[in-house]
Amino acid sequence: MPFKYNSTRRYRIGKMKFKLTNWPEYEAGLRRRGSLTLWITPEALSSWQAPKRTTRGGQPRYSDLAIESALTLGLVFGLRLRQTEGLLASVLKLIGLDLAVPDHTTLSRRARTWRSVDGREGQDIAAKQAVHVLVDSTGLEVYGVGRWLEDKHGARSRRGWRKLHLALDADSGEIIAHVMTGQDEGDASQVEPLLNQIDNPIGQFIADGAYDGDPTYEAVGRHSAGAVVVIPPRSNAIERPDAGNTSQRDRHIAAIKANGRMRWQAASGYGRRSLIETAIGRYKSIIGHRLRARSFSAQQTEVALGCTILNRMLACARPKSVRCRTVKA
Rank of each mutant, 00 (worst) to 15 (best):
Pro2Ala: 13
Tyr5Asp: 08
Arg9Ala: 14
Tyr11Gln: 14
Ile13His: 12
Pro24Cys: 05
Ala28Trp: 06
Arg33Gly: 10
Trp39Gly: 03
Thr41Met: 01
Glu43Ala: 13
Ser46Tyr: 02
Arg53Gln: 12
Gly57His: 07
Glu68Ala: 05
Ala70Leu: 03
Leu71Cys: 02
Thr72Gln: 03
Gly74Met: 02
Leu81Gln: 04
Arg82Tyr: 10
Gly86Trp: 07
Ala89Asn: 02
Leu99Tyr: 11
Thr105Ala: 13
Arg109Asn: 13
Thr113Asp: 08
Val117Lys: 07
Ile125Lys: 07
Lys128Met: 10
Val133Leu: 08
Val145Gly: 04
Glu150Arg: 14
Glu150Lys: 14
Glu150Ala: 15
Ser157Gly: 15
Ser157Arg: 02
Gly160Ile: 00
His165Gly: 03
Ala167Gly: 09
Asp171Leu: 09
Asp171Glu: 13
Glu174Phe: 09
Ile175Phe: 00
Val179Cys: 07
Val179Tyr: 01
Gln190Phe: 05
Asp199Trp: 06
Ala207Gln: 00
Gly209Gln: 12
His223Met: 03
Ile231Gly: 05
Pro233Ala: 01
Gln248Leu: 03
Arg249Cys: 02
Ile256Tyr: 05
Ile256Val: 13
Lys257Trp: 07
Arg261Gly: 11
Ala266Leu: 09
Ala267Phe: 06
Tyr270Asn: 03
Arg272Met: 07
Ile276Trp: 02
Thr278Asn: 15
Tyr283Ser: 00
Ser285Val: 04
Gln300Val: 10
Leu305Pro: 11
Pro319Thr: 04
Arg325Met: 08
